[in-house]
Design a protein around this nucleic acid. Structure first.
Length: 508
RNA sequence: GGCCCGUUCGUCUAGGGGUUAGGACGUUAGAUUUUCAUUCUAGAAACAGGGGUUCGAUUCCCCUACGGGCUACCA
């Protein structure tokens, strides 16, 4: 690695829809590497293919990275010295580069129509546009100079293809995998510039990475097979010295079965695959995201950061700052990792526990609003107390309602069957006395209430166990929730009395 | 089919010639919580197979098997 080189790294998503786990992790690893080395992290939008470009996707990507806490130095919105950052806005330059390669003899004009190539593929099952057959196809290598010029002058539809060497060995040293080599005789003449004038990924990535002075490229392993094309391009342009270092990240796999994780798997297995909700503007289909499911960005980033990487210790919980400080390419795992939603949930649980109540407050208040609790009906101080009481029970922020709804609204359904069979007149009388005594109490705190309640039971020669559950059910509605006297304290005298009264009415 | 990459508990992984092969998620059992969840403690659980090299391979090499990726005028 060239240590003098300024680290400059880019994330280059294609704005074709929501950002899935693999995409965010690629962004994250690029980012961690850049920041670890004090370098730049830039965003380049790869909207090369107009037919698949989806409106709104670029904004979505920006929002997603911001949510994750990934800060961008240069992008289409904040600009920089290497713009434009949208592929489509760089279109004019690509053709010139492709033609430069033609002049140098490393590429050629190909006039074959899609239909003609289809025909070839039908004739020869393993058809490849390469050194063996390119002379029998319609291109600037097989045609005379005059014919070629004539077709070009006529604006005959054509592509520009790379002229893959007959028999060479191309290799490079991957930061993660070590030396990887390919035989060019097995590769084909890939299209560099499409008939519509847009570059393919192969051309665009090389030209732009050069123009943007990219030093390191972290991308998914699915790009490994096309890397020799990119190496060759860097060489043919005469830029080999400035070629970035490559690092091919292991893939994120389906939790069950085999293969790359896809959006469909999330739908099928019931967990999100996108970072945030994504609504397809064409179909209107909504794909649920981690953010909306109730993931904390810290948990999401933590979970992705250690999927295929670890620091060599037994630490599992990392903040973004720690990930940046400890990140190292050498410690990236080579093999693909199956995504485990259970573990992802555990990360969120841990992060909710570790997050200060105050920092959770805005999200918790949003949950309350969603559940028709009027804003302002309860003080922040009250909500904060409830958060600290139930925080450790939450896997998702949304779980708050399930765990704590009875603090905000009287339960509607009572698990009467749990206490009714063993109900007695004696118990009714006991609770009536409790109501009377509670209303006269000056002090109202959990420990005082608990001893008062228990002393009363003991004094009457009754069993504590017989009364705890009825009290809980009258206050909460069911057999769950935090310490019952904490609930009594937080609910306040009036509410407690009214709920016991209501419970008594139900039982008699 | 061809090419490329990979393979340690069910899953994510640590380790890297001599280890009781460690941790986490999940799971099982117990404790705590007079509820549920949390939490705590303990347990079960892995080096794909075969050849080398070596005094000794899970570790290094080769082969096989298996898995994955790519094989478009998609990225």
């Amino acid at each position: 690695m060239n240590s003098q080189q300024k680290v400059r790294v880019r994330f280059a998503p294609s704005p074709t829809g929501g950002l899935h786990l693999g995409g965010v992790r690629t962004a994250l690893f690029n980012y961690l590497f850049a920041r670890h080395h004090g370098g730049d992290f830039i965003l380049r939008i790869e909207d090369t293919d107009q037919t698949r470009f989806v409106p709104g996707a670029e904004e979505y990507i920006l929002e997603c990275l911001a949510w994750c806490g990934i800060k961008i130095d240069e992008s289409p919105v904040n600009e920089g010295n290497f713009g434009p950052y949208r592929q489509s806005e760089r279109k004019p330059s690509y053709r010139a580069y492709a033609e430069e390669l033609v002049k140098k003899g490393h590429a050629f004009y190909a006039f074959d129509s899609t239909e003609e190539l289809e025909e070839q593929r039908k004739l020869f099952p393993n058809f490849k546009y390469n050194f063996e057959n390119r002379l029998s196809l319609r291109n600037s290598l097989s045609l005379s100079e005059e014919e070629t010029q004539k077709l070009l002058a006529e604006n005959h539809p054509h592509t520009i293809r790379i002229k893959m060497p007959d028999n060479e060995s191309v290799y490079f040293d991957d930061l993660i995998r070590g030396r990887v080599s390919f035989e060019t005789s097995l590769l084909d003449d890939k299209v560099l510039l499409k008939a519509d004038g847009m570059p393919t990924y192969h051309l665009a990535v090389v030209v732009d990475d050069k123009a943007m002075e990219i030093s390191h490229v972290f991308r998914g392993e699915e790009w490994l097979p096309s890397s020799p094309i990119h190496i060759l391009l860097w060489t043919y342009f005469g830029w080999k010295e400035q070629m970035p270092q490559w690092a091919h990240l292991p893939l994120i796999l389906k939790p069950d079965g085999n293969g790359k994780l896809s959006k469909r798997d999330g739908d099928r297995l019931g967990f999100p695959v996108y970072a945030m909700n994504w609504q397809d503007p064409k179909t209107g289909d909504l794909t649920k995201g981690f953010r909306e499911l109730g993931f904390l960005p810290e948990a999401f980033v933590n979970m992705l950061g250690v999927l295929g990487w670890n620091d060599g210790t037994e630490q599992e919980i990392f903040s973004m700052e720690e990930l940046i400080a400890k990140f190292s390419v050498e410690r990236i795992h080579k093999a693909g990792a199956k995504f485990d939603f259970e573990k992802a949930k555990w990360f969120n649980h841990e992060w909710i526990k570790n997050t200060a109540d105050e920092d959770l407050l805005p999200q918790i208040k949003a949950v309350l609003t969603e559940n028709s609790v009027n804003d302002g009906q309860f003080s922040d101080e009250y909500v904060l107390q409830i958060i600290s009481l139930v925080k450790e029970r939450l896997t998702f922020v949304e779980d708050f309602w399930e765990q704590a709804n009875f603090f905000f609204t009287a339960p509607k359904d009572f698990d009467v069957s749990a206490i009714k069979p063993k109900w007695t007149a004696e118990k009714t009388q006991f609770f009536n006395e409790v109501i009377a005594e509670f209303s006269g109490l000056a002090e109202w705190n959990a420990s005082g209430l608990e001893s008062h309640f228990k002393n009363k039971i003991n004094g009457a020669g009754l069993k504590i166990g017989e009364f705890m559950m009825p009290l809980r059910i009258m206050l909460v509605g069911g057999k769950f929730g935090p310490d019952v006297f904490q609930i009594v304290e937080k609910l306040g005298k009036q509410e407690v009395i009214s709920r016991i009264q209501y419970g008594l009415d139900l039982l008699n």
